[in-house]
């Protein structure tokens, strides 16, 4: 369990591609140990936001900071993970990748680590699948395996990008239990979601974005009809003559 919970702070953050902002001037903090849903229409910048937190995308402006234990590691489950499913690899080996932060490039995997892999497989209901090649897994089983890998990463911060899209109800319920467990362990969890019922049921905090942040706070306040309508009106089209943004420039 992480010793100190980690917060994620956004200081006037603008993320985007080329010069086009996908997340525009986000300012605020994801509290340590909070469970936050990121909600918004397609193209609202939700995935971009997660990439910014992981660090694979550099902000065009502003800063994203993680507080808490120095260089806190982030566990990240991307949307439609770019996994080569035809690669000859067993479920066990895929899950065991989660041990990377302890084993690194060359470290060995001992009896203790193997026990942790077994526990993680058990937690997501994949006992008996160890030797199966990943090519034979269904979409839901694959997602279970990826959650097991996240469990092994044992990170204070966990980012999930649409983890339950195209996943059946039973699997979603099982994996939500894992998410709740992370929350109970004071890990900071951020998940991009589309199903508002799930958000209302499980996630205390919500960030509603539509390129610009629309609302952020308690889920019940954020998901008001007015806010949702505002988010839906987001301009999807991109303006070829957009002028440089000077907001925040002194």
């Amino acid at each position: 369990m992480p010793a100190a919970a980690t917060s994620i702070q956004f200081d006037e953050v603008t993320l985007g591609y080329g010069r086009r902002p996908a997340v525009h001037h986000l300012h605020g903090e994801i509290a340590p140990g909070s469970l936050t849903a990121v909600v918004g229409p397609n193209g609202a910048g939700k995935s971009t936001l997660l990439k910014g937190i992981v660090g694979t995308l550099r902000p065009l402006e502003g800063r994203i900071r993680l507080t808490g234990p120095a260089n806190a590691r982030i566990a990240y489950l991307p949307q439609a993970a770019e996994i080569d499913r035809t690669f000859p690899l067993s479920v066990y080996d895929l899950v065991a990748m989660g041990l990377w932060s302890r084993s690194g490039l060359f470290g060995s995997i001992g009896a203790k680590d193997r026990a942790r892999v077994e526990q993680a497989l058990d937690a997501v209901g994949l006992v008996g699948f160890e030797r199966r090649p990943i090519a034979t897994l269904s979409g839901g089983q694959m997602q279970r395996a990826l959650f097991a890998r996240l469990l092994l990463q044992d990170s204070p911060v966990i980012l999930l990008d649409e983890p339950f899209t195209a996943i059946d109800a039973k699997t979603t319920a099982d994996l939500l239990d894992v998410v709740r467990r992370w929350h109970d362990e004071s890990r900071t969890v951020v998940a991009v979601l589309h199903d508002l019922d799930t958000v209302k049921r499980v996630f205390p905090q919500t960030l509603l974005i539509a390129r610009e942040p629309v609302a952020w706070g308690e889920t019940s306040d954020v998901l008001s009809p007015e806010n949702l309508l505002k988010a839906r009106r987001m301009v999807e089209a991109h303006d070829p003559h957009a002028a440089p943004c000077h907001r925040g420039a002194a």
Binding site: V54, Y76, E82, L105
Partner: peptide
Amino acid sequence: LVLECVDPTFLRSVS
């Protein structure tokens, strides 16, 4: 090398 083949995004996120 194996990780880079199977799941490059994951490798980037941990190393």
